[in-house]
Structures are given as C-alpha cells and as structure tokens.
Amino acid sequence: METTRHGAAAGDAGRPVSADWTIDQEWDSYTPEDHAIWRTLFERQSKLLPGRACGEFVQGLRDLTIDAGQIPDFRRLSDDLEKLTGWRVVAVPGLVPDEVFFDHLANRRFPAGQFIRRAEQLDYIEEPDVFHDVFGHVPMLAHPVFADYMEAYGKGGLRAQGMGVLANLAHVYWYTVEFGLISGVEGLRIYGSGIASSRTETIFALEDPSPNRVRFDLERVMRTLYRIDDFQETYFVIEGFDDLLALADIDFGPIYRRVSALPDLDPGSIDPADIVLHRGTGAYHKARRNVA
C-alpha cells in the first residue's frame, strides 16, 4: 500500500505558500469517517490512560474539552489554551523544517498536523497526525510549567541549530516531550505524547519488563540514540516538571562540547553512571532482531 506523505516529508509538493508553513485547518472539510477515526482513537486511549497518564495530562484534557465527539477546531482549542498558558495551536500540513518548528515553539505556537490517519493505520502511523499532535501534545501545554519548558526548548533549538549541535538537543525532545515518564506521588506515569497517543506503547512503556527505565540525566540523554520505528528500549524518568524547566537556566555550551567528545550510547544500553529504576530484560527487541 502506497503511503501518502505530508508536509516536509512530501518534498516540494508538501510545502505551503506561507513561510511559517501554517495553513488553514479547513475543519469543515473533515468527513464523517475522519471524525469516526478520531472517536475510535480517543475512546480507546481514554480507557487506557486513567492510572497511567500523569494527572497534569488528564487535567489538560478536561480543561481544554478535548473529547471524543469530533476532531477539535484549532481556533476554539487555541482560544481556551491561550487563556491558560498563552499558547495557540496552528495548523500545518505535516512535518515542518526544524527552524520553522523551533520558531513556533519559541513564540508559544504549537504546529499540529491537520490530517488524520486512515482506518488501517489506527495502531501505527509513520508521520504525526492530528490525533498524535492534539491528543498527545496539547493537554500538557495547558500545564504552566510544561508550557514554559516547551517555549524554552524552542529558543534552545534555534541556538543549537546555529551551533551545529541540533542532534544532541533533538534527543532531549525525544526522551521528554515525546517519550517521557514521570515519577511522583502517583507512581510512574506517562507525560510523553508518543506514549500517550499510542495504545500499544502506553502498555509497553509502563508495564512491559523489556525496556529500561532510567532516571533522567541531561548529558546521558543527549548521547542516547533512539528508535523511530518501534518501541523505545529505554525510557527516561523525571521526578517533576520543574526538572525540565530547570534546563532553561543551564549554559548548554560546555555541555555540548563535553557530549560531542563522547561516543553515542545505544538505545538499550545501561551506563555505569545511570540511576536504574528498572533494568529491562530486552526480550522484546531481542525477539524482533532475531525475526529480522
């Protein structure tokens, strides 16, 4: 089956007219089937996340009235979000160039793909769609500390791009915003959008014995490669969202220099300096490699 590409992944064909890559969401063009796919995805994730997603994520869903009824209208969603944390959601055709992405974040705009996956892609889609971007990301933007972290990340991304060290900072985004876990009074919980929007990874990240769960350490994370085509082999755990916001006050220059002199770490490796919360069996990925 041929895969339709969107945004930057589609090359010149996916580039919109606007320099910031924003487009009209064209909410009225969504079909009943589109809304039905949203409803299916929303309902099954909503059943899984209680007791697994952090309280801040669940509260964000409630505060923003993101529900099963229909794909949210970004204008109304943005009006509600802006009252809480000053953020807005802007529609883009799909993936956008790094500099565009960082500029949006630095100005409290979250670029969300406006297309939705097809019925045969319910469990996996290669590019982030409206369900991943809105259901997975936007609830956390209603939390003031996390919202500040995302703005700081955007500004840091623009600096890192200028310094030629973007890959290291991309690892931080991947292992926090996309696939982060948090520990607290509730126990181990999800806050990363890539987990929260995925039925299978929700269970795997928290409950499967295969992956490592390691205390977050900035330099360690910057050196750690990640999986883009499968479950993560290691999840990094913060103790609170203030841990993330504290990164905004760090001078990254010396850190980039230290990290660039060290080798990358494999996604499933354990470093001697790690604070290991759970040493995974690695069984899932071993079985996958054997099949391949």
Rank of each mutant, 00 (worst) to 15 (best):
F204D: 01
N107D: 09
G268A: 14
N290Q: 14
S197A: 07
G154F: 11
E33S: 13
Q70G: 06
D20M: 15
D251Q: 02
S260F: 02
D12N: 11
R88K: 12
G14P: 04
L265I: 15
L277G: 03
A196H: 00
R108W: 04
D266M: 11
V17A: 11
P16Y: 08
H132M: 08
G156A: 11
A160E: 06
D243Y: 07
N212S: 12
E207D: 09
D123V: 13
G14T: 12
A283G: 08
P111N: 07
F101G: 03
R52E: 06
R257H: 11
A205T: 02
E120S: 11
E26R: 15
Q161S: 12
D249G: 05
I23P: 01
V134L: 09
K83A: 11
I238T: 06
A19Q: 09
I270S: 06
G69N: 14
V90M: 09
V90E: 07
A142R: 03
I37R: 00
R189T: 02
D208Y: 07
F101K: 06
Y235W: 01
G156S: 13
S18K: 10
E56A: 15
C54S: 15
E186M: 00
A19P: 07
V92G: 00
G162T: 03
I255T: 14
G157T: 13
L61D: 06
E43I: 08
T3W: 04
